[in-house]
């Protein structure tokens, strides 16, 4: 039952290249997929767990990655990260459809897996093998989910404005959960439209995210990432363990990043897609925080921490 449960969290492939490509799909290690409705029986005949793809059942989400906004003046040259984590936090019961260009299928798969949402990835045919490798990697690291760890509870009115605030919080690794009412387990509860967080302030989501960061204080933050502007994390954990998912939206390997996780975790290990023998270096756990360097990171890494 557990394996079935876990497999349900893995993203699906939407494959419209026809049953003639069955061998290639099989070689990629992919056994279940969405296909055009009129091909379902052929794929089933080829021993695949095939389902008809019906676009109306899914929410289409943007192509993910980064955009350099060189013409926009600002305090930082950090590129604009286009990620969907905030969207998934908003609605984890949704079903999502990625239609991604070449080289983006693994990123999509990692993102969907990280947030535990049901997703289907329409991959470029040239990404078939790497997508299969990513699925195998995700299977290899999969384990029962732990509760999501966050600093901020935010009450979501469903508006586009709040959505953009969530987006900006996610980009800054200000870990949040969408809540219905203020919850004291969070360091900060945010309700847009209150005196403390007026709607006028949220009109500038970037400034609003800065305001939230200020009120929270960097020392309290569960996650800090240094050395890169294009990696977004998600943290889960219980009393003794934590799992940190790191997603690199930058499109190329990150050469060195320093991570700080709040809490003293005596032991840490890493599994990184596309990086042979990934290790954590300069590891320290003291004074309420754990820090380590990840010397190299491709599109996705997961760090397991134990107290």
């Amino acid at each position: 039952m557990l394996s079935i449960f876990c497999a349900a969290l893995l993203p699906w492939l939407f494959w419209d290249q026809g049953p003639a490509t069955a061998n290639a799909v099989k070689q990629a290690g992919i056994e279940r997929l969405y296909v055009p409705a009129d091909q379902v029986s052929d794929w089933k005949s080829a021993a695949f767990a095939a389902q008809p793809f019906v676009m109306e059942q899914f929410t289409r989400i943007p192509v993910l990655g980064i955009a350099h906004q060189v013409d926009t003046a600002g305090a930082t040259s950090a590129p604009w990260v286009i990620g969907n984590g905030w969207r998934f936090e908003r609605d984890r019961s949704g079903k999502y459809y990625y239609n991604v260009p070449w080289h983006k299928a693994t990123l999509a798969a990692a993102e969907a897996y990280t947030y535990g949402v049901e997703a289907v990835v329409h991959a470029d045919a040239r990404d078939l093998a790497t997508f299969g490798r990513m699925l195998a990697f995700l299977r290899s690291i999969d384990r029962p989910a732990m509760p999501v760890l966050a600093n901020i509870g935010i009450m979501d009115d469903g508006s586009a404005q709040t959505g953009e605030v969530l987006n900006l919080l996610a980009r800054r690794n200000l870990l949040f959960q969408v809540v219905r009412t203020p919850d004291p387990k969070y360091d900060l509860n945010v309700q847009i439209g209150t005196k403390e967080y007026p709607k006028s302030a949220a009109a500038n989501p970037a400034a609003f995210a800065v305001l939230v960061r200020q009120k929270l204080g960097d020392e309290k933050r569960l996650l800090r990432v240094y050395g890169t502007d294009v990696v977004i994390g998600r943290l889960t954990g219980d009393e003794r363990n934590a799992r940190l998912h790191l997603i690199n939206y930058g499109g190329s390997k990150v050469e060195g990043m320093r991570v700080r996780v709040r809490g003293d975790y005596a032991h840490g290990s890493v599994a990184a897609f596309g990086t042979g023998n990934a290790t954590l270096t300069d590891y320290s756990a003291a004074n309420g925080a754990t820090e380590f360097t990840l010397p190299e990171m491709d599109v996705y890494a997961v760090i397991d921490l134990q107290k």
Partner: peptide, 23 residues
């Protein structure tokens, strides 16, 4: 931009303009 040539335990932390990487 690579940080591998730097000492992770010796740094100055400061937030000038709201940048995320403050080290």
């Amino acid at each position: 931009g690579s940080i591998l040539g730097y000492d992770p335990k010796t740094y100055v932390e400061v937030n000038f303009f709201g940048e995320e990487d403050t080290r």
